[in-house]
Amino acid sequence: MATGNQTGNQSALLGLLRFALIALTALTGLGTIFVGVITAFQAWQEHAQQHWPTATAYVEKCAMVHASAGRRLALHIRCRLHVDLGTEQPVAYLYSMNVPPPEVRQSPPNQIAPFIDWVNRHPAGTSIEVRYNPSRHTSVVPVTDPIPRTGPHTPDNLKLLAATSISFVVLLILLRATWPRSVQLRKP
């Protein structure tokens, strides 16, 4: 037979678990909204970039440079380009994401290799086909031979959005199933 103290402990534990489920459901819902907004923004941006005009750009200098990553060691690609637009040749820059240098322990190992290979394939004078923003000619994206780990993010963002949405719905169903019957709204 359960005593009043045991019943109180069970009730407190259920209340704590219910609170944790509410908090997790709310965080997952907010995460889903955040991922949805980022996905929509990047999809719009990538769609707009697909309609930018193309031009040939010439590499002035392309190198691996140290990144500002606080105390962590990191490198990234920095390329200075001259975009050939006929009468004007604006200077544009291409950057990669940060990558750990070879001496830093990492998993998977040697993440920098594709970045170094890309830089080696683009010495000074190399031409790169780019799309440029017609209203800001210094904003460019490569058409072919993109920098490693760049390119469209929308497919991966959509997968993340699906995962967060499914998690939110599952947690919402669990929350509804564990909610005390006396508190649930009655259907008319």
Score class of each variant (00 low, 15 high):
93 Y>Q: 08
66 H>S: 13
114 P>K: 03
108 P>C: 01
76 H>V: 07
101 P>N: 09
115 F>S: 03
110 N>G: 06
117 D>Y: 07
102 P>L: 14
116 I>Q: 15
103 E>W: 12
89 Q>G: 02
86 G>V: 00
112 I>T: 05
94 L>Y: 05
93 Y>K: 05
60 E>G: 12
121 R>C: 00
75 L>Y: 10
99 V>F: 05
118 W>R: 04
80 R>W: 11
104 V>Q: 13
92 A>F: 04
118 W>A: 03
74 A>N: 09
94 L>P: 03
62 C>I: 07
74 A>M: 14
108 P>A: 01
60 E>T: 10
62 C>Y: 08
68 S>L: 06
109 P>F: 00
71 R>V: 12
122 H>M: 01
60 E>L: 12
123 P>K: 01
112 I>D: 12
60 E>D: 15
74 A>F: 07
79 C>D: 10
86 G>Y: 00
68 S>A: 10
81 L>R: 05
116 I>L: 12
88 E>R: 10
92 A>L: 06
58 Y>S: 08
70 G>L: 12
83 V>C: 03
106 Q>C: 03
72 R>D: 15
104 V>R: 11
93 Y>D: 07
67 A>Q: 13
113 A>L: 11
86 G>T: 00
123 P>V: 05
55 A>G: 03
88 E>D: 13
56 T>S: 09
91 V>G: 05
56 T>P: 00
67 A>H: 11
98 N>L: 11
78 R>K: 15
56 T>Q: 13
99 V>N: 05
77 I>H: 05
107 S>G: 00
104 V>A: 11
73 L>C: 06
81 L>I: 09
92 A>C: 07
83 V>M: 01
86 G>D: 00
